[in-house]
Every structure is written in structure tokens, then in C-alpha cells.
């Protein structure tokens, strides 16, 4: 199956947040009420019961204020850091690109929470597990499309094959650049080796709360690629040294005693 993904066009989004509601509805997630922060954004970030949120950004411009909206959720990376760090192999990537989770295996260690360069997976205290967007894999496999894309009234969210979506995105960016959005760009084509959530942005990624060069922390890669596979070998080495000494000490002692003509060496060695 070809890589499937979402294409989110930030320039078409009206921040109706229908996707947020549809996501909650389909995934049967309870409402999370956070204190008012002085803007229209419902939550600070994704949380254990909110897999997707639309973030609001306001900027002053010579032509007046600009108001940007951007839907944030799991990016379903081609090379997901969360899958690498998961010690229970609960996280995995399916054949058409979704990063999924086997909740039978999750033990709530939260390694994935701190490995994700987009800070998306969140810890759910009541179940002691970490939750995130599933790209509605069960809907897609039954022939449907993700709940968020299904509900989007403006056509800002589309679901389809990644290659086709990229072609659409390139056309759209070309149009936007020619029509008053000189900084328009595609996000997710090359970032971190490619994301299965593609974005059409009307401006630079930072202005939409997205890192322009997302990067897995070097501490995490050092831990996963050097410490975990190699440092542990020191333990069998110490055990082997002790085992070797166990035999050589006794062998040498026996030989010494033999040389001394069977006389014991005394109470100390």
C-alpha cells in the first residue's frame, strides 16, 4: 500500500476546530477544560485526551494584524523517534505510514514523550499510558478517511496518497507565492526524512509554531545508538573477568602449594 497521509492547508483553515471535535468524537475522548489564556486557542498543546488542536498565532504586519491558524497532531514521521526509544516495542509504523500504538504493551515509561521532536505524545495518568493521534488507522483500513479530514468544511484537510498530496501541495504553493504569500512553503516533504502529515503554510514554519528544522535531541540519539547497544557489554566483561580470576587464582594456588611440597601457605594467601 502506498504511503497515505493528510494534507493540511493552513491558508484554507478558518480555525472552526471541527477537526478537534470530530477527533474527540471518534476517539471517544472526554473534554479537557483549561484556564483561559487570553486567546482563542482551546489548549496549550496536545494532551492525553486531545490528540489534535488548532493553534492560534497573531502577528503585526504593515498591512494590519495577521492571524495564523495551524493544526497540530502526530506527524506520523517516516523515521519516528518514538518508535526507536520504545522499550516495549508498543509503538510501530504500519505499512501505509501511520505510527500506531499497541496499548497492551505500553507500560507508561514516557520515553516517547521526551523523544518526540514535536512534543506530541502525552502521558495519560488514569491509565498510566501515553496517547496520541492514530491517523484514524481503523477508519482508513475500513475504506474511510480520518475523522478530522472527513469533517473539515473548507477543504483545508485532505486525505490521500502522499505522492498525490505532494503534487497538489506544490501547485497550491506556486499559486500562493504568486498571490500575496511570498513565503508560502510545503512542510513535511523533507523534514526528518519526510512526514506523513503534509502542510501548506502561508509563511515560514516558525510562525505556525512548527520547528523549521525539526531534530531529534542529540541526547536521545546518543542514548539510543551508543549507550543502549554498547555500554551494556561492560557488565558481561566484568563477569567474565571475575570468572577467569576464579579459576586462575585457584589454579595458581594449587600450583604454589605443590611447589612448596604440600605445605599449606598459612591462613592468608
Amino acid at each position: 500500500m502506498a504511503k497515505m497521509g493528510n494534507l493540511y492547508d493552513a491558508t484554507k483553515c478558518t480555525a472552526c476546530r471541527g477537526c478537534q471535535v470530530a477527533c474527540k468524537n471518534w476517539n471517544q475522548l472526554p473534554a479537557v477544560i483549561e484556564p483561559f489564556k487570553g486567546n482563542y486557542q482551546t489548549h496549550e498543546s496536545t494532551n492525553a485526551n486531545t490528540f489534535t488542536i488548532v493553534k492560534f498565532f497573531e502577528y503585526d504586519d504593515v498591512y494590519g494584524p495577521k492571524w495564523y491558524f495551524c493544526k497540530h497532531q502526530c506527524m506520523h514521521c517516516e523515521y519516528p523517534a518514538c518508535v526507536d526509544v520504545c522499550p516495549r516495542k508498543a509503538l510501530y509504523k504500519n505499512e501505509w505510514g501511520a505510527v500506531l500504538k499497541d496499548y497492551q504493551k505500553c507500560v507508561g515509561c514516557q520515553y516517547c514523550v521526551y523523544a518526540c521532536p514535536f512534543e506530541i505524545p502525552k502521558y495519560h495518568k488514569e491509565s498510566d499510558m501515553v496517547t496520541k493521534c492514530t491517523l484514524c488507522a481503523e477508519r482508513v483500513e475500513a475504506g474511510g478517511i480520518p475523522a478530522c479530514a472527513k469533517t473539515c468544511p473548507t477543504g483545508a484537510l485532505q486525505f490521500g496518497e502522499r505522492q498525490e498530496l505532494l503534487a497538489i501541495a506544490r501547485e497550491r504553493v506556486k499559486y500562493l507565492r504568486a498571490n500575496g504569500f511570498p513565503n508560502a512553503t510545503i512542510y513535511g516533504e523533507h523534514e526528518l526524512g519526510g512526514l506523513n502529515k503534509l502542510y501548506i503554510l502561508g509563511d515560514v514554519p516558525e510562525k505556525y509554531g512548527l520547528p523549521s528544522e525539526p531534530k531529534v535531541s542529540s541526547i536521545t540519539t546518543f542514548w539510543q545508538n551508543i549507550v543502549q547497544p554498547w555500554f551494556g557489554l561492560l557488565i558481561p566483561l566484568a563477569l567474565a573477568g571475575s570468572a577467569a580470576s576464579f579459576f586462575t587464582t585457584r589454579f595458581l594456588k594449587a600450583r604454589r602449594e605443590q611447589q612448596e611440597g604440600g605445605a599449606t601457605h598459612g591462613t592468608h594467601n
Partner: peptide, 26 residues
């Protein structure tokens, strides 16, 4: 960042301590 740093720290010093414990125990 501190949490990210805690993971390799926990592992590295667990390994060093275990090494010492193997030798010390023997």
C-alpha cells in the same frame, strides 16, 4: 532537556555500578 539527559545517565551509571558490584561481589 533534564528528563532527556536522565535516561542515558540512568543507564550509564547503572552499568558502571553493576560492573563494580560484579567485581566487588566476587
Amino acid at each position: 532537556t533534564l528528563v532527556r539527559l536522565a535516561y542515558p545517565t540512568h543507564d550509564i551509571f547503572m552499568i558502571i555500578a553493576t560492573m563494580m558490584v560484579c567485581m566487588h561481589g566476587y
